[in-house]
Amino acid sequence: MAEAELDLLQNYLTVGAIVFMLGVVGLIARRNLIVMFLCAEMMLQGVSITLVAFSRFHNDWGGQMLVVFIIAVAACEAAIALALILMLYARAGKLDAAYWQEMREENVPPYIDREVPLERLEERRWPDLAPAGVAPEINEEEQSHRSHV
C-alpha cells in the first residue's frame, strides 16, 4: 500500500516541482512585468499542488488550509501587482523590468538592450476587430454546410 501511495505522491510532487521551477525560471527569464508576476503565481500554484498532494497523503487538513490561504494571499498580491504595474506603465511607458535599473552601485555600467530591428509599419498586422454596436449578419452559406451533430 505504502509503495503505491508513495508512487502516486511522487507523481504529484514531480508535477508540483516542475510547475514551481517553471515559475522560478520564468520569473528570471522574462522581462515583462505582467508575465513575471504570472510566473510568480505559477510558483505558488506549484507549491499548492505539492501541498494538496501531501495533505492527501498525510490525511491531514493542514496542507489544504494553507492552499486556501495561499490563494487568498495571491489574490492580495495580484491586486497590488496590478496597481503597481499600471503605475509603472504610466510612468515609463514600458512593461520592461530591465527599464528599472537606475538604482545600482556607482561605477557599474547600465545594461543596454541589443537593438532589435524595428518592424516595418506596413508589415504589422493588427488583429481584426469586431465592429461594435452592429449585430453580425448570419452567414447563410456556412449555415447550409454546417453539419448537425
Partner: peptide, 26 residues
C-alpha cells in the same frame, strides 16, 4: 523602482519559503 524590485523579489522569496513549508509539511 524600489517598490518594483522589492515586490518581485519579495514574492520570489515568499514562493521559496512556501515551497520550503510544503516540503517540511511533507
Amino acid at each position: 523602482e524600489a517598490t518594483t524590485k522589492y515586490f518581485y523579489l519579495g514574492i520570489l522569496s515568499s514562493g521559496l519559503l512556501l515551497y520550503g513549508f510544503a516540503l517540511l509539511y511533507g
